[in-house]
């Protein structure tokens, strides 16, 4: 007897967020099904990998992670170009680490020329992430946002306690925004509401549900993402945002990735990224080129299997 598969059909798709301009534009989101279940709905935009680079030479990256980039890492502009030319990046994530007080506390005057040069030479859409110090971010990010006005970048990271400055500046300069919450579906929604209340178009918000690495409570992130998705599909507009996951930075700070050679670290990043894709990730920010290449291939196969190309 043939088995009839139970199929779920959902009413509301996830928002589609466009990053970048013209032919280079990257679209994320838009799915109307849980990942890769093409019998239930469609995924018009394949999930995508964004390599992560810093605006200064990394001091804490392990040798196995630095290896593939060679001395290009001494210059963020060259590093960016290498990602695009050698590793085929379609979108780039630049973390403004140098602005953090622990890494030099550089100000906007230092960062803007670097970001501008990257934008010009790399020629792909940009994700710009602050150094992670609220006070410094609120000072630097508005100026960088203004410098990139009209470039349709994705800026981050807005949190429940620090969202106003970034949301206001992204609104003024025409960028999309990343809204972060601490593995909590309610807070995720609250941040989205708070940002929307400022007049920000909810369809220009990308959610960061917090990333954790394999072995560090990843299951919690997985279930929160899944719950968020299911709520969005049945009509909760304040959760209908694509997900971004910072897999690279999380994986490469674990001791498992740093010890026992490069292969283990790469595999760790791949395993984490695959899990996040299966949970609903739309944009993966990754570090090791080999891991990124594997995941890009994985996405290709998963998308192809559904005949959804």
């Amino acid at each position: 007897m043939p088995i009839e598969l139970v199929k779920e059909k959902y009413s509301t798709p996830i928002n589609t967020v466009e990053i970048g301009l013209g032919a280079q534009t990257v679209k994320i989101g838009g799915e109307s099904t849980l990942p890769f279940l093409f019998d239930e709905g469609s995924m018009p935009n394949a999930p995508i990998v964004a390599p992560e680079i810093l605006d200064c030479e990394p001091t804490e990256w392990s040798e196995s992670l630095k290896g593939p980039f060679g001395d290009s890492m001494k210059d963020p502009v060259r590093w960016a170009s290498k990602c695009v030319k050698d590793f085929n990046a379609k979108i780039l994530c630049v973390r403004l680490q140098s602005t953090h007080p622990d890494y030099g506390g550089k100000n906007a005057d230092h960062v803007i020329p670097i970001v501008n040069a990257i934008a010009k030479s790399a020629g792909v859409p940009l994700i710009i992430i602050g150094g992670g110090d609220d006070e410094r971010d609120n000072d630097v990010l508005p100026k960088v946002s203004q410098a990139l006005k009209g470039e349709n970048c994705l800026f981050g990271i807005a949190t429940q306690n620090n969202y106003k400055t970034l949301a206001a500046t992204c609104l003024a300069d025409g960028h999309s925004i990343i809204a972060e919450s601490p593995i909590d579906i309610n807070i995720a929604k609250q941040v989205n509401i708070l940002i929307s209340d400022m007049g920000f178009d909810p369809a220009r918000i990308v959610m960061h549900p917090t990333t954790t690495s394999l072995g560090y409570g990843m299951e919690y992130v997985y279930s929160i993402m899944e719950r968020g998705r299911l709520a969005a599909f049945i009509g909760d507009k304040m959760l209908a945002m694509p997900f971004v996951l910072f897999v690279g930075s999380e994986v490469w700070k674990t001791k498992e990735s740093k010890e026992s050679g490069a292969a283990q670290g790469i595999n760790w990043e791949v395993a984490t990224a695959v899990s996040m894709l299966q949970a609903g990730a739309d944009l993966l920010v990754m570090r090791h080129p080999d891991a990124a290449r594997t995941i890009t291939k994985y996405i290709e196969i998963a998308m192809d299997r559904g005949g959804n190309k």
Binding site: D184, N186, I187, Q190, I193, D236
Partner: peptide
């Protein structure tokens, strides 16, 4: 607990 966290908003996370 989930309900409680959702209630920590004015008026509520689920508007």
């Amino acid at each position: 607990m989930d309900e409680y966290i959702a209630s920590l908003f004015f008026p509520h996370t689920n508007l």
